[in-house]
């Protein structure tokens, strides 16, 4: 049981961090489909830096710097070049997937995977007894818990958070309140870039300590689904991400337990099926209440 919970948390952490990134972006009025790309770029840069330097701190720092740069590019494209947010986000994801696969070959001469000599620290690794499984958790899982609280506090209990939310729900109102909407969007995307760097690092340097081509396997899109499923609320988004972690852990566990009886493809489908059902249910509830489906529309001047 303890093992299972730890597996859930491990599976959830990357999605969780990326979902918080998506939550900030969507609150600011940017639908972030680039989470997948930022995760995979973070994962690659972290692994490559870890291999070259042998330092986890440098690996994290490098991943963060690269993702902040990519997020800045994303922002420039949608703000100054008025590019379509969805297209740019998808483009970022697809480009990053291709670029990291290519870089894997060019830098390491490998088409499959590279191993890192070091991994993320595990703060509770000294524990023994019934709490011993917690020792497998990386530092970033604990960071995710702290960051969830920070996200909740910053969104719900600060004026800056209110202003950020106003940028998403009514940009015209935000502008009328003197909020520099574009700058708030930049800030949200930068926070998102930072969080996705953590998510990517967790993915490659926590358990397996390796980077393989397409390491994210759609987790970024799952994180985006968690943003919608969690109703763009910090706690809701985290719960949704944890649920996806549970579904993934359940998949791993079921393959071990009833090997062969349950097709693994079905288990892999599970989180997506649940997402579709859950989003449908929330849509129906909203309709019953007479609310409009969630849409981000820009009121023009």
């Amino acid at each position: 049981m303890g093992d299972f919970i730890v597996t859930c948390l491990q599976a959830a952490t990357p999605i969780w961090l990326a979902a918080l990134a998506g939550m900030y972006a969507q609150r600011s009025g940017v639908i972030h489909l680039g989470l997948e790309g930022l995760m995979v770029s973070g994962a690659f840069v972290a692994t490559a830096t870890a291999i070259e330097t042998g330092s986890i701190a440098l690996a994290l720092a490098a991943a963060i710097v690269v993702n902040l740069t990519l997020s800045l590019l994303f922002w420039l494209l949608i703000t100054y070049f008025k590019a379509n947010v969805m297209i740019v986000g998808l483009g970022l994801s697809l480009t990053a997937a291709g670029a990291t696969g290519y870089a894997l070959v060019v830098v390491f001469g490998s088409e499959a995977a590279v191993q890192s000599p070091i991994g993320l620290p595990q703060p509770l690794s000294g524990l023994t007894g019934p709490l011993a499984p917690l020792g497998d958790l990386s530092v970033l899982t604990f960071a995710a818990i702290a960051l969830t609280w920070i996200a909740w506090w910053s969104i719900r209990r600060t004026r800056a958070g209110l202003k950020l939310s106003a940028c998403g729900s009514d940009p015209f109102a935000a502008r009328s309140a003197g909020v520099p909407v574009d700058r708030y969007r930049l800030a949200a995307l930068q926070i998102g870039g930072f969080l996705c760097a953590l998510a990517g690092t967790e993915l490659s340097l926590a358990g397996v300590q390796s980077f393989s081509d397409n390491i994210t396997q759609g987790r970024g899109y799952l994180a985006f689904a968690a943003v919608l499923l969690g109703n763009v609320a910090p706690i809701g988004v985290s719960v949704a991400a944890l649920f996806f972690g549970f579904a993934a852990a359940f998949g791993i566990q079921s393959q071990l337990d009833f090997n062969g009886t349950l097709p693994p493809q079905f288990v892999l489908m599970l989180p997506y099926i649940v997402t579709i059902i859950a989003i449908s249910i929330t849509a129906v509830i909203k309709k019953r209440r007479g609310e409009q489906p969630t849409l981000i529309l820009e009121r023009t001047l």
């Binding site: 004026r159 209110l162 106003a166």
Partner: peptide
């Protein structure tokens, strides 16, 4: 120009110009 999903109190805070970093 008040976000439809904000409460009345939140709207006042949104337009609050008092000094404070966050």
């Amino acid at each position: 120009a008040l976000p439809a999903d904000f409460t009345v109190a939140q709207c006042f805070e949104l337009f609050n110009d008092g000094p404070q970093l966050l």
